[in-house]
Amino acid sequence: MRLTYPTNVKVLKVPCTGRVDVIHILKAFENGADGVYVAGCLEGECHYLVGNLRAKKRVGYAKQLLEECGIGGERVAMYNLSSAQGQRFAAIALEMTEKIRQLGPNPMKKGSRVMGHGSRENESQEQVARTEAKS
């Protein structure tokens, strides 16, 4: 398909989004990510039955925690797509990047401080936890 998606998206692979915990999401922000989205299988199609549904709840809880500590709950999102939806994956990466760009950098980063290894100011970074389950 030779699709492209923004280079600032860092993909972290997990066997199932059910493996993603709240602390993983928080640590991404603590380490300077501007946004995090969890890309799980379509609802009802989890190989482990409910992994993606559990991830959805955990993302919801992470949103609450990020809101109360001032980072902002809107910086984290859950998406559902199948491993055959390459175009959708690229579209989500673009959509999330645009959304985070509008929100600006992680509020932990003040003024002109460097935003992390190799990244420039105002350039959004997202970390992605994505299932690699094959259907």
């Binding site: 602390i23 603590e30 925690l65």
Partner: peptide, 19 residues
Amino acid sequence: AKEVAILASELKMHREKEG
């Protein structure tokens, strides 16, 4: 251990944001 890690992360991020 998990809740301690979550609270520590939240507090650190809030205080970092406050400078």
